[in-house]
Design a protein around this nucleic acid. Structure first.
Length: 422
RNA sequence: GGAGAGAUGCCAGAGUGGUUGAAUGGGGCGGUCUCGAAAACCGUUGAGCGUGCAAGCGCUCCGGGGGUUCGAAUCCCCCUCUCUCCGCCA
C-alpha cells in the first residue's frame, strides 16, 4: 500500500512508478476518489460537531426539566444528513481501498530503469564457473542415476511438478536446511517455526493478494492459503503491532515448504528441479528502522551469499530493473548460481526491500518518540536459500568425471560425515 | 462440533444511555529529596484523520461490523478471537 499523502501530493511520481513496473492501475481515479473523500469528510465533520454540541444541550435541558422537543427534531434531521454522508463515504472508501490494493510499490531511485530482465545489472561475481566436461550429466539424470531423485514418484503421488527425494537425497535436503538455519542463527537471526497455511488477511498483508490469487493453492471451505514463501507467515508475525525503535532490527529466519501453482508456466525451464509446485526454503525476514533499510538490504544479501559461499557454488548478484521488480518490492537483488549441466544461471534467492509497503498493509508501526510524526517500519526479506535449484547446482557443479558428487566441506558434518554421493 | 464466560488505554482493572478519551492501581517518563541510589512525595503519560506556519481547533476510535437514540464503552443483532467444560482426533 502506498501512502495516501504521497498519492495526493505527488501523483505524477506515482504514475511514473506504476508505469515503470508495467502495472495497469488507474491513478487518476484514485486521486479523484481521495479528493472526493476529503470533501465529504469535511462536511460531515462539521455536522457531527453540531450534533455533539447540541446533543449535550439536550441533556442539559432535560436535566433541569426544560422542553427540548424542537432541538431534538432539528438534531434528528442533522443525524439523517450525517447518515447520508456516511453512506457516501463508505461507498467511495470501498472503491478507493480496492484500487489502492492494486497499486504496486514504487521502485527506489537507485533501481535501474528498464522494461524487463534485459535491463538488469550484474553487480558481482564470485567463484569459478565450471567448464562442462565430457559426460557431465544434467541434475535430473545425475539424481536418478544416484537414486536420490525420483521424478516419477512425485508425478505418481501428486502430478507433474512434484518431486520425491530418496535416501541420501532426502538426507541432503535435511542437511542443507539445517546448515542454512545454523548459519543464519550465527548471523543473529531468531529461528521461528510457523504455520504453512495462512489466512486471507496475511496474504493481503504481504501483497500476494489480491494480485496473485491464481498462483496460490487455496482451501475453499476455510478460505485459507498454502504459503508460497515463508515471507508471508513470518512478516505477518508482527501484523498490527507497534515496534519500539530500540527493538529494531528484528531478524527472523524460518524453514518452510513453499507451494506455488505456477499457473501458466510450462516448458523448457521447468525440467527436473528447475520449477516445481512444492519446494523447501529457508527464509530471512527483517523488520528495520526506515532510515537504515537500504543498509539492511546490503547485509541481508551478504547473509544470503554467505550460504552460497559455504556450499562452494559460483554465483552472481543481479540488481533487478524496474520492469523486473515484483509488485511489492522497492529494490531487489537476485542471487543466481551457475549450473553447468543445464548451462544456466539459476535464481536461488531474492533479497528485497519493501520499504513501508507491506508494513502499511499489515499495520506494523514504528513507535514514535514524542513530537515525531508516525511512521511504519520497513520490511525486508531474502531467501537463504531455496533448495531445489541449489540441489540441482550441487549435482552439476560438484559432479566429478568419475560420476560422483562431492559434498561441500561445510556440509559434510550435516551429511553424517559423508563427503561424496555415489 | 456442542455448552458457558469474556474482549476497555503499555499492563491490571472500574465503568449499564448525557462534561468518560475514559476512575483506580502498576509501569514508563520528568521533578523534589540524596554524594548517588532506593523509598517517599509531586507532575506527566493512547492512537489515527482533517485543518493550521504554529499554538491550537475539529472528527473518529473502549475486539470488528450493523442497528436503536437528539445522544452509546454503556441497549439490540451478527461476526471474529480468547478462556473453561464436553465431544472428536494426529
Amino acid at each position: 500500500m502506498l501512502d495516501r499523502h504521497l498519492i495526493r501530493e505527488d501523483p505524477d511520481r506515482v504514475i511514473m512508478g506504476v508505469k515503470s513496473k508495467h502495472v495497469d492501475a488507474d491513478v487518476d481515479r484514485i486521486v479523484a476518489l481521495d479528493r472526493e473523500l476529503l470533501d465529504i469528510m469535511k462536511e460531515s465533520e462539521a455536522l457531527k460537531h453540531e450534533r455533539n454540541v447540541k446533543s449535550e444541550e439536550v441533556g442539559r435541558k432535560k436535566r433541569i426539566g426544560e422542553n427540548a422537543d424542537e432541538l431534538q427534531a432539528h438534531l434528528k434531521d442533522v443525524s439523517n444528513r450525517i447518515k447520508e454522508f456516511e453512506e457516501k463515504d463508505k461507498e467511495i472508501s470501498e472503491e478507493l481501498d480496492t484500487l489502492l490494493l492494486t497499486l504496486p510499490n514504487l521502485p527506489h531511485k537507485s533501481v535501474p530503469v528498464g522494461k524487463d530482465e534485459t535491463a538488469n545489472i550484474v553487480t558481482k561475481h564470485w567463484g569459478e564457473v565450471k567448464e562442462p566436461f565430457d559426460g557431465l550429466l544434467p541434475h535430473w539424470d545425475m539424481g536418478e542415476k544416484l537414486g536420490i531423485l525420483d521424478l516419477d514418484g512425485g508425478r505418481r503421488v501428486s502430478g507433474r511438478g512434484f518431486v520425491v527425494f530418496r535416501g541420501d537425497g532426502a538426507l541432503l535436503c535435511r542437511a542443507l536446511l539445517t546448515m542454512m538455519i545454523d548459519i543464519h542463527r550465527e548471523q543473529g537471526y531468531e529461528e521461528v517455526w510457523v504455520p504453512f497455511i495462512v489466512s486471507r488477511e496475511s496474504m493481503t498483508g504481504t501483497g500476494q493478494l489480491p494480485k496473485l490469487e491464481d498462483d496460490m493453492y487455496h482451501t475453499e471451505v476455510d478460505d485459507l492459503f498454502l504459503i508460497p514463501t515463508a515471507e508471508v507467515p513470518v512478516t505477518n508475525l508482527e501484523r498490527d503491532t507497534t515496534l519500539p525503535a530500540d527493538r529494531l532490527p528484528i531478524k527472523y529466519t524460518a524453514y518452510t515448504p513453499c507451494f506455488r501453482r505456477e499457473a501458466g508456466s510450462h516448458g523448457a525451464d521447468t525440467r527436473g528441479l528447475l520449477r516445481v509446485h512444492q519446494f523447501d526454503k529457508v527464509e530471512m525476514v527483517k523488520f528495520v528502522h526506515p532510515d537504515s533499510s537500504y543498509d539492511e538490504l546490503e547485509s541481508l544479501t551478504k547473509d544470503a551469499t554467505d550460504v552460497v559461499e559455504a556450499l562452494d557454488l559460483p554465483y552472481r548478484i543481479v540488481e533487478l530493473s524496474t520492469g523486473d521488480l515484483s509488485f511489492a518490492a522497492a529494490k531487489c537483488y537476485d542471487i543466481e548460481v551457475y549450473a553447468p549441466g543445464v548451462e544456466k544461471w539459476l535464481e536461488v534467492s531474492s533479497c528485497s526491500n519493501f520499504e513501508s509497503f507491506q508494513a502499511r498493509r499489515a499495520n506494523i508501526r514504528l513507535k514514535k518518540s514524542p513530537g515525531e510524526k508516525y511512521r511504519f517500519v520497513h520490511t525486508l526479506n531474502g531467501s537463504g536459500l531455496a533448495l531445489p535449484r541449489i540441489i540441482a547446482t550441487i549435482l552439476e557443479h560438484h559432479q566429478t568425471p568419475t560420476g560422483r558428487v562431492k559434498i561441500p566441506n561445510r556440509l559434510v558434518p550435516y551429511m553424517n560425515g559423508q563427503d561424496y554421493l555415489g
